[in-house]
Structures are given as structure tokens and as C-alpha cells.
Simulated scan of single mutants.
Amino acid sequence: MRALIQRVSEAEVQVDGAAVGSIGPGLLVLVCAMQGDDEARAEALAGRIARLRIFRDAGGKMNLSLRDTGGAALVVSQFTLAADTSRGNRPGFSSAAPPEQGKALYEHFAQSLHALGIEVATGEFAADMKVRLVNDGPVTIWLDQ
């Protein structure tokens, strides 16, 4: 699985003009299931993200995790993270998992984060979403699991 995470002060996702998920301080997690991914990879990625020490401690160092801070995660499915731009000008997405598998792994990933004690809000799989965020730092990190 692949994720792009952004440390945020707040984030919200809208579908058809209505908010479907929002958080205060925490992480916006854009996630993509790739060909060959399974539930074990989704769980491993969730664990990595929950434990990743990218929040400031009292001394201002990035030393605290999402679990340490009690922050939330806004999980948004984004198959375009699978983009292959190695040839031509039009990205290819054949390395993304098929839609049914992608949706199941996206949901399993969000449930796995929740099971780790993280408050989770989500977008809507395969919807045309509008994502608004205030990036804190900015801190943006790419993860492959």
C-alpha cells in the first residue's frame, strides 16, 4: 500500500458540497491500494502511520506520534498515488489494485487505524471529493508498505 501523509491543523473532505469527514489536529492520509496488496499490508501501514514520530514534543523536536498526541486521521482514498509517469505525458494507473479490492483494503486500513486507538474520519471511496487542509509545518511524507 502507498500513502502520502500530511501533518495538519485541520482537514475536511466534501462530496457534492457536503462535508463527509473532518478532523482537527492530526494527519491527512491519502492512501492507495496497489496490485498484490492484502490486509496484512494495510494493517502494517496503519501501524507505521500511528507510530510515526512527526509531531513536536515540548522541546519542539519531531518526537511524538499520532498515538502520543491523541490526534485524528482523515483517511482519503486516492488511486492516483499509483501513477506511473515514466513514459509519455499521460500517467498510467495499472499498478493500482482493482476497484473492489481497493475499496476493501481502504476500509480495512481505516478500521486498522481505528483499532490502534486513532480517531478516524474518512472520505467516500471513488467519489469526486474536495479536500481542504491546513498543512502544519509543512510536513508531508510518502510511505510505501
Rank of each mutant, 00 (worst) to 15 (best):
D84K: 13
K130D: 11
S94H: 13
H108R: 13
L133Y: 09
G117F: 14
A104F: 02
V120W: 00
L113K: 10
G123V: 14
M129K: 10
K103F: 01
L116A: 06
A121D: 02
E119C: 02
V120P: 01
F109W: 06
T85Y: 10
R132G: 11
G137R: 07
Q101I: 10
A126F: 05
G102A: 15
T122W: 00
A110G: 11
N89R: 15
A110V: 07
A96H: 02
S86K: 12
Y106H: 13
Y106N: 07
T85Q: 14
A82G: 09
A126Y: 03
G117L: 13
V134K: 10
A83F: 12
S95V: 02
S95Q: 11
E107L: 11
L133W: 14
P91N: 10
G117Q: 14
D136C: 05
R87V: 05
D136L: 07
A96Q: 03
G102D: 06
A115L: 08
G102M: 08
E107W: 02
Y106F: 15
S86C: 05
L105K: 07
L113W: 08
G117P: 12
G123K: 12
S112D: 05
D136H: 11
G88W: 03
D128T: 08
K130V: 15
S86P: 00
L113Y: 10
V134G: 01
F109C: 04
G102Y: 06
V131Y: 01
N89Q: 14
A115R: 15
E100W: 02
P98Q: 13
T85S: 15
A127V: 00
L133T: 12
R90Q: 13
V120G: 00
G137L: 09
G123C: 10
K130W: 02
G92L: 14
P138T: 05
A97M: 10
Y106V: 01
S86V: 01
M129N: 06
E100L: 13
A83H: 09
L105Y: 07
E100I: 10
K130M: 09
A110I: 08
G137I: 07
R90P: 06
A121M: 05
A97Q: 12
H108G: 01
D136G: 08
G88P: 01
M129Y: 10
A127P: 01
V131N: 00
E119N: 07
E107I: 07
A127D: 03
L105D: 06
E124D: 01
A104I: 00
L105T: 06
R87G: 02
A96W: 03
M129E: 06
L133P: 14
A126S: 11
E124V: 08
R132V: 15
M129T: 03
E119V: 11
Q111D: 14
D84V: 12
A121P: 04
P138S: 11
V139P: 09
N135R: 07
V134T: 14
L133I: 13
A96G: 08
L105E: 08
E100P: 03
E107S: 06
M129P: 12
V120Q: 01
S95Y: 00
L116P: 00
